[in-house]
Design a protein around this nucleic acid. Structure first.
Lengths: 198, 198
DNA sequence: ATATTAAACGGAGAACTCTCCACTTGTCAA
DNA sequence: TTGACAAGTGGAGAGTTCTCCGTTTAATAT
């Protein structure tokens, strides 16, 4: 994990220790009290560092959550890739459904952190749509939509737009609303999404 | 405007004056600095009231924005009603498109306040989907979708879900993303929405 | 008029996010 | 080894949102 900075010197040892401590503390605290109810201050205090140090590494809680979820995210994309390869023969619509199913499973497993990511984007800054998770997923989905459009000679419904809508529908806000207010199960959400967008 | 409270005494005169002052100050300040950059404190100070008094009337900036937008909202619904009546003969898909066009015009005219409403929902509290604007719009759109479903005997795509998706696509987040990042004009957004959801 | 009282008031202060910057400390080159 | 210095640190403090609660006051009943 050394040479973290792509240019210049490698990360200082004490800095690396602090980073690890932050991650550990955050993980534990999130587990214990829920992401929403843990403040950056609390994390800093518990990790025995100044809040400035914490903010130096993570500009906001979002970024911290992203770092915490990185491994799961990589697993997700591996799963997706395997699935896509194993089902390369099947029609793209079906492969898209498979991808969505995997993503929904991922959402269920990381609901808290994902909600934390979306709710804690600091004011004027970036949004959900600029996170690597969004961008990478977007790419994959667009490709599938374009494959679908190529098969039937339809007057190309803009794949990028359609993908944005589909992923917006899977944002924590929208997804949790469907679960909690409309009472839909993950399975029926998947079903409805396919019916609406595919 | 007296007897505002449905039960009990009428609103106190000084309270009414304060309310008006708050609204005036907020309107001016929002105009001057942008909704995002005006704090509740600032409004209270400028209106010469304690912040407690401000919060007593509006639990958060969202509610204040909602009060400020009330008149425009009513105009919107009048416009929609007129349009629906004048075009009652046309197919529901077309009427839905008309409704969306009116709503988008409304969004353009009230972009700042609407964004303020969606961004300032205080933490655990209610969301976009519980505002009267959402609920009323939802009702109208569901009706249109159901009319559409009734005409062709399709295996009823759930109108409620479809409406939620459509309105989510028109939330400030999603809408502004399409405008600013994807570079779509209001017209092309309307076009794409129809292609995707109708 | 006067008393009563629910409503309205205001501002201190708790809890938070995030910035700033003077200070400290690993690291690397000499 | 040592010294320069970029990197890292910490905590005060500015600016927010929102709550709490003792005080004031307008509207009503008497």
């Amino acid at each position: 994990m050394k040479q973290a900075k792509s240019n210049g010197r490698s990360e200082r040892r004490d800095a690396a220790e602090n980073r690890q401590r932050i991650l550990d503390v955050a993980f534990t605290l999130f587990e214990l009290q829920g992401v929403e109810d843990v403040s950056m201050n609390q994390i800093a205090a518990e990790a025995q560092i100044g809040s400035g140090t914490l903010y130096r590494r993570y500009h906001n809680k979002s970024e911290l959550c992203m770092d915490l979820i990185k491994d799961s995210k990589e697993l997700l994309f591996e799963d997706i890739e395997v699935y896509q390869e194993e089902n390369a023969a099947r029609p793209p619509a079906e492969r898209l459904r498979g991808l969505l199913a995997l993503f929904i499973k991922f959402k269920e497993k990381n609901a808290q952190l994902l909600a934390g990511i979306e709710n804690s984007f600091s004011s004027g800054a970036q949004s959900r749509t600029e996170s690597p998770l969004y961008i990478e997923l977007h790419e994959l989905v667009v490709r599938l939509f374009e494959e679908m459009a190529a098969q039937n000679g339809d007057p190309q419904p803009d794949s990028v737009f359609r993908t944005d809508m589909l992923l917006t529908a899977l944002s924590s806000n929208s997804y949790l609303f469907q679960k909690n207010m409309r009472g839909l199960s993950p399975e029926s959400i998947l079903e409805q999404l396919c019916q609406t967008f595919i």
